[in-house]
Write a protein that binds this DNA or RNA. Sequence first.
DNA 1: TGTGGGAAACTAGTATACCAGTTCTTGACA
DNA 2: TGTCAAGAACTGGTATACTAGTTTCCCACA
Lengths: 224, 224
Amino acid sequence: MLRLSECLPRENSRDYALRTFKENIINMDLPPGCIISESDLAAQMGLSRTPVREALIELSKVKIVEITPQKFSMVARINYDLVEESRFLREILECSVIELVCDMAAPQDIEQLEENVQLQNLYLARNASDQLMVMDNNFHAKLFDIAHKSQIYALTQNFSIHFDRVRRLALESVKDLKIVEDHAKILEAIRTNQPKQAKELMQIHLSRYKVDAVAIRAKYPEYF
Amino acid sequence: MLRLSECLPRENSRDYALRTFKENIINMDLPPGCIISESDLAAQMGLSRTPVREALIELSKVKIVEITPQKFSMVARINYDLVEESRFLREILECSVIELVCDMAAPQDIEQLEENVQLQNLYLARNASDQLMVMDNNFHAKLFDIAHKSQIYALTQNFSIHFDRVRRLALESVKDLKIVEDHAKILEAIRTNQPKQAKELMQIHLSRYKVDAVAIRAKYPEYF
DNA sequence: TGTGGGAAACTAGTATACCAGTTCTTGACA
DNA sequence: TGTCAAGAACTGGTATACTAGTTTCCCACA
């Protein structure tokens, strides 16, 4: 059963469906291997098949949804090759982008990043993990933005679901404290214009999310 | 007016439409700034709006097509920021992948690459530029394949249209001879397992496609 | 009881109808 | 002649209808 949220203002049905499916796939309400049908999802969301179908097609392009014509559609099982591709893509992109950022960041960009990190500290103190995660994503999106690579960031968002949902299953959750510290250090490297340092810090930062594939597979064999 | 080809066997209408639009956009039959309408394109292709619409949505995700609801849709004008993002993405991906390839290539992979390069030499001798281009794309796709990064390759294909169509406008055409030589050298670096060398060669190879933005803009101002 | 066939109930793909918003034209009126 | 309003003709977004292919199940028949 789908976990629904409200359709946002100025959000069309297709984007609403897409957002809903992504959320439900990452939080495992639509678990790996789950059989889905356009008409069933449409009914659950109170939409017609058209926007639902368009959303599923988009997810099938990154192999998060597998559509077998005239037979069935399925939320893709976890495929470690794709998880690794997803992780690889993020690593090389973020590490390239952070170097650019050191050269390209304007004072007001740095201000915005500072604001972001301060909010992260606030949410960390409040134990507001969800809000912290939003600011985390925000931080990385802002880096792509500064480097004028927003479209590349957008391009990778669906594909990253492969990695995101595995991270969510990880038994050892990454400590929020470490994440925020990382961001602060990265920001400091940007401020002092040390691209090599920033890149190294980013690599360390991203490696924190490494997951124990064997353990996850042992615990959730039906997801593979 | 659309330049049409046949619908391939086992290709559905949506993929047929998508392939057709991509071809027509790259070869400028659908030039930058061209106003398009779902129903018009559907009529030209002998399809209904549905598969045409699904294809246009996919192209709009990478900003090759701009859809303004209730108003009009347009083939995006050339945007150098996006061209640069497209070039940047290709460069960092190819350069990362080629390093992996040096470690991961199996003997039969190298055989296939050799076969490919031999065919390239054949088509070069025959002045068969179209076929050469196919083998060129094939060569790079194979590299991603060897590195187990096929999905990343697929992910970037639509986005690369930004770069591809500008390359097609470039006044100085890249010499086929150089391209084939580059491929041969890269293959040699792979065979002898020299990742650094391979990466450098790849960078040189990709830099050949650099385009003179100012000259193109001067010649085709209506495309910007 | 076991087997084969056919209808029914599903699937996704495609076509069409309808809706809502925008633009442009046209014609009546000042 | 200029202006403005009504409506026609478009746009893309959504809903629905229909098509073709697959699976399931059940019943007739051996």
